[in-house]
């Protein structure tokens, strides 16, 4: 996947700890089963001066498929699984310090499609209105895509990728300094309840966020 461009440091639009709390309050208490939430932060590319959306933070709750696929054969090929595990081992070493201790057993467990989709998201970015997150920010309106067929037909590589990895619902809500994306392996139709929660939890300005 493409690597996100170097971003200007910019103002601290959010505090990761409070953002995590907001993610959890939103997803853990929701009537629907959301798999993850991601905040795409609006930043400026230092080289070109163009604005783009890059990884801000995310919360991966998981889904039933995680449990099933770790017990049964994975949908991914053996070679694909091996590559995912290799990347996970390297990331684990990066975080815990290479060679400091033997790798945890969990690193050798199957990396499910939705876990992989979430991990890959950390490397992605969207310039000026591109992709579902970029379009939502540009248009200033929420994009709600429910259904694997609709994701597959969306004019956005990320949406199509989401469908390939088993997601059925993707929602992008523009916020002041970025976009909140929600994803689910369940089919979730528009919910005024979740939108109301998003508004109450994330209706901040840059001063409140920093």
């Amino acid at each position: 996947p493409a690597t996100a461009p170097a971003a200007s440091p910019g103002p601290p639009y959010f505090n990761q700890e409070t953002l995590q709390q907001r993610f959890q309050m939103l997803i853990d208490s929701a009537r629907e089963r959301w798999t993850y939430a991601i905040f795409w932060q609006s930043s400026v590319d230092m080289a070109s001066g163009n604005s783009f959306l890059g990884w801000g933070d995310g919360y991966y709750k998981g889904c039933e498929e995680d449990k099933r696929k770790r017990k049964a054969a994975s949908a991914a090929s053996a070679a694909e699984q091996e590559q995912r595990k290799r990347v996970l081992r390297e990331l684990n070493s990066l975080i815990s310090g290479a060679g400091s201790s033997p790798p945890d057993e969990d690193v050798e467990e199957e990396v499910t499609d939705t876990e992989w989709f979430f991990l890959v998201s950390m490397t992605q970015s969207f310039v000026n209105g591109e992709g579902i997150p970029g379009q939502a920010l540009f248009a200033g309106s929420t994009t709600w895509i429910a259904g694997a067929d609709r994701l597959a037909m969306a004019p956005c590589e990320r949406a199509r990728q989401a469908q390939v990895f088993g997601l059925q619902t993707m929602v992008c809500v523009p916020l002041g300094s970025g976009v909140l994306e929600l994803g689910a392996t369940d089919l979730i139709h528009h919910s005024t309840e979740i939108m109301s929660k998003v508004r109450s939890l994330f209706s901040f300005n840059s001063v409140e966020m920093s």
Binding site: A4, W55, G58, V87, I95, M122
Partner: peptide, 26 residues
């Protein structure tokens, strides 16, 4: 992985930690 910017390390560390919990409780 070497190119993972510092800002994403916290997200990654949190994901790996939560994954460990999910795997052990499965």
């Amino acid at each position: 992985p070497r190119a993972v910017p510092q800002a994403r390390k916290a997200s990654l560390a949190r994901f790996l930690e939560k994954r460990k919990e999910r795997v052990s409780s499965a």
